[in-house]
Nucleic acid binder design. Structure first.
Lengths: 319, 319
DNA sequence: CTGAAAGCGCTTACAG
DNA sequence: CTGAAAGCGCTTACAG
């Protein structure tokens, strides 16, 4: 490549690295660009990585890629990474991976930073010293976090149901011991407590349709049946629909149901689900932007992305 | 590291690379392993890549990661890759990516091979000479392909509906000009033609619930209404349910509906969907195994993975 | 059985 | 403004 352009290797490196102005004549720079174009030349990333001691690759850790939510997070993160010339490697953990350690161990030296979504903080213990941005996680930690304003979302749901006259509300709560679900639970409790005569019951479930159906069923079979079921996410709401149907209850005629996330499922259900839209792709994008800033030596602040209540057909006036 | 073990760099490399038997004494090898363990030493992948001219990284190209189907493909591929010490980089294309070329261009030199799922073959033109295995693609090409036996799946659906007495069948067909959908269409047509008195109508739609609802609606509004709707995938079936409900038709009392894929959505719907289970994770795993074989100098044969008809609540005897 | 040496292709002081 | 040289950390002939 250097001889094709009739210059030295150093000059090629300077020009292609964009560091030439003031050090290489414009004419020479143009010649280098021309030759590179003509030959389809691209710098060898392995050599560059070795020399620089950096890989321009970031790891995204998510609980699973099978939930479409995390596919969106990946899309947003990948878009921002690509724009800055960074690669993105995803590791679903622990759900889909085989032996959890092997990919980790292999990549410890191969990445510059970590974007970890919805993960217990302990998972990062294996990567001491690696810059990290946490997504959808407890902001009390030392790392920069990017979160959704889920408490606001839950309050919006409580207010929406309250305005429709609901007072006896059931919470179909996700079991995982994650920060986001703890916040959702607390915000809902506060929102219902603020309703005159508000009363909250709760059933805990794993994030699984069949399990959610059982949990919702327990709530619906109580002596004083709730008139609305607030579910911690859209998938749980699908289970709530099933529990309602199994008992001959019409949604939203006899029972209002809400979700959270607004994934594809929300509009696949009948009736379509009233839920809070959480901008998953934006989460990935802002998280990657923060990580890139961190890698560049900055101190990006933690931040929180607002959700938006989307009212569809699953909520109606209390009977 | 070398001095910590009291040996030369070459010896470390030989031992850690597993090439020591017969060349290094067992005692020395043990000492090297000990020191590596103690220091938490891991070879620098960039140096290795530079020296070897290989990256032990494979690119997975999928249309999108937001469809859970491709999340499963990724999981299977990543599992096999990790087991062989390979990394996996995913590029959703063209759906989620920003500027399509930028990540491609950047990674051309950074990967050893490509696993491309459900993509037009032209996309690979930008990677001349890179070993490729195609997933869910026309096996007529030169590359090794790993596919689902979708024709068998469609025939199983046609036979199932035929046995239930259905004769007027509507096909909610996916529009994308993909090999898999062409095969599905042809197999269904043959299966219905084999039914005495069988008659097939068809409406084409993009892979989108609202569009599928419209397409299914056109079929249902025909003079002689079909008694069963065969959908090219589960998401289209969700649209078919909506079209049925909008017309006061009960599924499966008035109308049977089938899907294909068996993703999460299939059991979220009410009634749960009769569909053909396509082993997406297995597709990714077998595709990666084939690619690894190809990279190792082998000539892996193309293959086809069987699906399985899963009968749930959305099909019943024809009225 | 073990080590010294070359070289993979970059980037970055440094000399001119 | 331009080029020669060093060195990043490996792997692999090669010599002993």
């Amino acid at each position: 490549m250097a001889q094709a352009a009739g210059v030295s290797q150093s000059t090629v490196s300077l020009v292609l690295g964009g560091k030439w102005p003031g050090r290489v004549s414009p004419a020479t720079a143009a010649a280098v660009h021309d030759a590179a174009e003509r030959l389809g030349y691209r710098p060898n990333p392995a050599a560059r990585n070795l020399r620089m001691g950096t890989t321009r690759t970031v790891m995204l850790m998510v609980p699973t890629l099978i939930a479409p939510f995390f596919g969106s997070v990946h899309a947003g993160a990948a878009r921002v990474a690509a724009r800055h010339g960074f690669g993105l490697v995803v590791y679903p953990w622990p759900d889909d991976a085989g032996p959890a350690d092997s990919p980790f161990a292999a990549s410890r030296e191969a990445i510059d930073g970590i974007l970890a979504s919805s993960m217990p903080r302990e998972v990062l213990a294996g990567f001491p010293g690696t810059p990290v941005v946490m997504l959808d996680s407890d902001p009390a930690g030392a790392e920069t976090t990017v979160n959704f304003a889920v408490a606001d979302g839950m309050r919006a749901i409580a207010a929406h149901l309250g305005a429709l006259g609901h007072r006896r509300i059931g919470h179909v709560a996700a079991e995982p011991d994650q920060w986001t679900f703890q916040v959702r639970g607390a915000a809902l409790a506060a929102g219902v407590a603020a309703l005159p005569g508000g009363a909250l019951t709760r059933a805990v479930t794993s994030i699984d349709i069949a399990a959610a159906k059982d949990a919702a069923g327990r709530l619906l079979d109580a002596h004083e049946r709730p008139t609305a079921l607030v579910c911690d996410d859209d998938m749980l709401a699908a289970g709530a629909y099933k529990a309602a149907r199994a008992r001959g209850l019409d949604v939203p005629g006899d029972l209002s149901v809400t979700g959270m996330d607004d994934v594809l499922l929300a509009t696949a259900l009948e009736p379509e689900l009233t839920t809070v839209r959480l901008p998953a792709e934006e989460l990935g994008a802002q998280g990657m932007a923060a990580l890139l800033e961190l890698l560049g030596g900055g101190r990006p602040p933690s931040r929180s992305l607002p959700g938006r209540l989307v009212v569809r057909g699953s909520t109606a006036a209390a009977v």
